[in-house]
């Protein structure tokens, strides 16, 4: 079929201003349509490509929807047991201090089963980067309540909404770890719009560059969607996220160069 509205005259290699990075393996990603994991995977790989450190970077994939990240990211990767990525990253970074090491984890992985590993790696000040995808739900297993699930939010295991009297309060783990002396850079971003995705990529760049300084953990939270778990279309989910997630999980830097950012 003839492609409509094609401007064949400008389709030359020298005019390419955006193309999929070669550090993403040429195969379909396993994420649902519109899922923020896809954008997060890509901007992370773009950053590593732009820094030219693909031969010196080791990533740890979690358990969760991004469990297959090692199949998508064309760098050295290891898969950790559920929640244990920061422990594995600790060992790798201590054995190969000249390598760049990151973990990529969901909220169930990082803030539920892996809470101890997260807090202690951050408190020890390991010289690693942690990328934390907070979609307020267990996506992979069918949308159960997570520690980060908002008050009143419906999930498969709290179908009438999270009742904090029975189920406890949503956990702001990013605020919590920003208080620890071992964290050097802590920020909260999103990837649902072009502006936000570009900002999140800059934050990831800083988080990776920081490893050269040997000053401790750089932690990038990405507040993201889970269209399937939230039972919405991707665009609805992104709007819902802006209206409900961002007031509780406000975007911006929490700690820069080892100093807490003062709230305005």
């Amino acid at each position: 079929m003839e492609e409509a509205f094609a401007k064949l005259d400008i389709r030359k290699p020298e005019n390419i201003v955006y193309k999929r990075t070669d550090l993403l393996v040429d195969r379909p990603l396993s994420y649902c349509p519109g899922c923020g994991h896809g954008v997060a995977n890509r901007i992370l790989m773009e950053t590593i490509e732009e820094m030219g450190i693909q031969d010196k970077t080791i990533g740890i994939s979690p358990v969760g929807c991004s469990v297959l990240a090692y199949d998508f990211m064309n760098i050295d990767m290891l898969g950790a047991a559920h929640g244990r990525a920061p422990a594995l990253a600790t060992a790798i970074k201590r054995l190969w201090p000249d390598h760049f090491v990151f973990t990529y984890q969901g909220d169930g992985d990082l803030a539920a089963i892996g809470t101890a590993e997260t807090i202690h790696a951050c408190n020890r000040g390991e010289n690693i980067t942690i990328i934390f995808i907070n979609n307020a739900i267990y996506g992979m297993t069918g949308g159960q309540m997570a520690p980060t699930t908002l008050e009143g939010m419906r999930t498969a295991t709290c179908p009438y909404g999270r009742d904090v009297k029975i189920m406890g309060n949503p956990l702001k783990i990013t605020e919590l770890i920003s208080q620890l002396p071992g964290t050097y850079f802590v920020t909260r971003q999103s990837v649902h719009t072009p502006v936000n995705a570009r900002r999140a990529k800059k934050a990831i760049r800083m988080a990776m560059e920081n490893q050269k300084l040997n000053k401790g953990v750089s932690f990038v939270e990405i507040v993201s969607n889970c269209n399937s778990g939230w039972k919405m279309t991707p665009n609805q989910a992104n709007k819902w996220m802006e209206e409900n997630m961002f007031p509780f999980y406000p975007l911006g830097d929490l700690k820069v160069d080892g100093k807490l950012v003062e709230k305005k």
């Binding site: 993403l24 994991h37 954008v39 570009r198």
Partner: peptide, 22 residues
């Protein structure tokens, strides 16, 4: 009307858009 601003490609979760600008 495409200006090659790359917005669509930056948010595409599956990275399937290539953008040209001249």
């Amino acid at each position: 009307d495409c200006t090659g601003c790359t917005n669509c490609a930056v948010v595409c979760p599956d990275g399937v858009i290539t953008v040209y600008r001249a």
